[in-house]
Amino acid sequence: MSGPVNIRTLAAGTRVVLASGAEAEIVSNPHDGVWLFARYLPAEGDPAGAGEEEMIFAQDVVEVRG
């Protein structure tokens, strides 16, 4: 497992991988270092979840795809 991701530096449009394996695209960043507003991208096995906008907790972000 890689080190913690500093989510404060992530811009809108950045794609991130979550602990669940799902991928999401950042919609906006309140820059509080704790939350991101992101939209889920289509994922294998969970096509219904795609497009949903949710608040993503910093500890759930495990990788930045760029």
Partner: peptide
Amino acid sequence: NTTVFTCPYHGWSFGTDGALAGVPF
């Protein structure tokens, strides 16, 4: 100016309308 008020202790987050918006895990 902010979009959310985030508690630094466990990370609960509230909108500017006061609604609980984010609960970690």
